[in-house]
């Protein structure tokens, strides 16, 4: 890559991500939230056809199933021996928040779970519904809903929010709702990108602009979340983190592995231990 191109890329990235910096952290959630929703809707509806295409824009995300599905099955099943794949997660109800085109919802349903896929972008839900309808073995176990997590009234055995928290405007409100829709002693799984210098270089500049693994402008580095922040927010809403694991993508082989450092991608598993409903209001007061 030439030096000129590198500088152009860097400039674009910095311009791109310096914009919402001050607005998002402090201000009230109403106005910027709609901005983010609009941005997400705009970004994702462009990519509506891409979800299930091999070598499409979401290839890297679908490959992450090699790590996140075993993580979920291991935590939900404990160390019971695997027998029939179709009964691995039988009896578990799982909500997949930010399900996108259903890249994770479908495998979970195929393992026997009853999955609710939730996404705020209508075109994502349309793509997910269309794809699941072609597989008779799973279509009865997946229920896709287009909407916001705050409108969900039921409680589930487990919640999965994979590559979502970095797209969420009001993280505190989001985590509060995540905790709310999980049954006591239920499981919460998050995968996201850490906010470090390395993640700016690798996950933002590298993946979006240099090797084109991820659609350009999909991520905003300022909105990435560190494991510590996520852990604090979860603790505030009654969830205890049991494990944080780093993940690494190998662009040449095209696969993910667990990785000793959580400085770029990481997965986090938490268990809901308390019921934070009474404290909810009090905690919500801004500093």
């Amino acid at each position: 890559m030439t030096r000129g191109r590198f500088l152009r890329v860097l400039g674009r990235v910095l311009l791109d991500s310096s914009r919402p910096l001050s607005s998002q952290v402090k201000e009230a959630p109403s106005a910027p939230a709609s901005d983010t929703v609009k941005k997400n809707e705009r970004d994702f509806s462009k990519l509506r056809d891409q979800w299930w295409i091999p070598r499409g824009e979401f290839e890297v995300l679908s490959r992450m199933n090699e790590l996140r599905v075993p993580l979920i099955t291991d935590k939900l099943r404990g160390h019971r021996k695997l027998e029939d794949p179709a009964s691995t997660l039988k009896g578990f109800s799982i909500i997949d928040v930010g399900c996108g085109g259903g890249l994770l919802s479908e495998p979970l349903a195929r393992l026997g779970a009853n999955v609710t896929g939730l996404d705020i972008v209508p075109s994502n839900i349309a793509a997910a519904k269309d794809h699941a309808s072609r597989d008779p073995s799973i279509r009865d176990r997946i229920n896709y809903i287009c909407g916001d997590i705050k409108d969900i009234g039921e409680q589930y055995d487990a919640l999965v929010a994979s590559e979502v928290v970095e797209h969420v405007e009001d993280l505190d409100e989001f985590i509060r709702n995540c905790s709310r829709v999980v049954k006591p002693h239920g499981h919460l799984f998050f995968t996201t990108i850490n906010r470090t210098l390395l993640s700016l270089l690798v996950a933002k500049i590298g993946a979006e602009y240099i090797v084109h693994l991820v659609p350009r402008g999909l991520h905003d580095w300022q909105m990435f979340v560190t494991p510590e922040e996520l852990q604090l927010k979860l603790a505030k809403h009654g969830c205890a983190v049991s494990e944080v694991k780093g993940m690494m993508y190998h662009p040449i082989g095209g696969y993910w592995t667990w990785f000793g450092m959580d400085c770029i991608n990481y997965a986090l598993h938490a268990v809901k231990i308390g019921d934070p409903c009474q404290k909810g209001e009090q905690d919500h007061v801004p500093k």
């Binding site: 199933n65 599905v69 075993p70 794949p85 495998p107 195929r110 082989g253 095209g254």
Partner: peptide, 19 residues
């Protein structure tokens, strides 16, 4: 791949075998 809930005949598993 089956225990990861992939579709039978999933291409990712086949590519992994080939590689």
């Amino acid at each position: 791949a089956a225990f990861r809930g992939e579709q039978p005949g999933d291409m990712k598993a086949l590519i992994a075998y080939e590689r």
